[in-house]
Design a protein around this nucleic acid. Sequence first.
DNA 1: CTTAGTTTGTTGCACGCACACCTAAACAGT
DNA 2: ACTGTTTAGGTGTGCGTGCAACAAACTAAG
Lengths: 154, 154
Amino acid sequence: MTLLRDEGLTVEELAVWRMLQRAQVRITRHLEAELLVAHDLPLASYDVLSQLAEAPERRLRMNDLAGRVLLSRSGLTRLIDRLQRDGLVSREACESDARGLFAVLTDAGAARLAEATPTYLRGVRAHFLDVLGPDEIGHVRELVTRLAGATDAS
Amino acid sequence: MTLLRDEGLTVEELAVWRMLQRAQVRITRHLEAELLVAHDLPLASYDVLSQLAEAPERRLRMNDLAGRVLLSRSGLTRLIDRLQRDGLVSREACESDARGLFAVLTDAGAARLAEATPTYLRGVRAHFLDVLGPDEIGHVRELVTRLAGATDAS
DNA sequence: CTTAGTTTGTTGCACGCACACCTAAACAGT
DNA sequence: ACTGTTTAGGTGTGCGTGCAACAAACTAAG
């Protein structure tokens, strides 16, 4: 694979990227599977609920929310449809802007979130954090911060 | 969020996990978008082609391949259908096991892969590797290896 | 006030994926 | 051989997502 050298990559660098992809996919699937069997709650739904829970007044504009959960606006529309159908979220109009809608966490949604959160946190610990040495976390945090921010510059 | 403490997580640890998720999704999307506009090749297809290219005789059993690209067997069946339709891959029977099938990289597939690889590698460099300090790679490799392997133990 | 342009959220559509089920082939024990 | 079990791969179906097109509401310029 002389192509690698042409682009200035080592085989090690490429392998690291592939393993990261692999690890991320597998961890995410474990997490989702655990949430699903224990609480019938997909990971994307969990993300939405927790974002709302952390937001002031447990409400967020659809657009803001879509950005935070890395979902397209249309995808979020459908996801909120489902959550609303299950009573975990409600839609409320925005008074200052008639086209705006808030997604609002209901009490039932908060309860469901509280119920699922231990499962989620245990999964993050078991599949991710326990694999890191405790002293590594600071280093990884710094690294991941750079990664999350840098992808904007494209 | 006293729930965090109940599970022995710090807010920093949780934030690191979230940012990693975020970074991974964004990098992957950039990569896929670039492959799509430049070569009309989805990332999953690229992965299959490159796995085949690295395999002995450019062929792999469906089951093996499904494991390597983190796809369900049915998902792989459909993906190979598409690649076969486009002439990038062919199916060949296995003589020693009549129910086995090989996915084989065709010359056209190898050509398409060679064409797309620079785009892919440049993307990996730009969105991922450039963000790492060169001295960090060894450390990250070691870490990611643990992550990729550890998720089996569940 | 009118008109052009932008932003917000939703809908039609097609795609890609996983789950459950199915068939055929291999294997195991009797 | 004969029957039950396992494994390889493919098919039917439903779900979740993004893209493009849309309607409604806001904004800005004349």
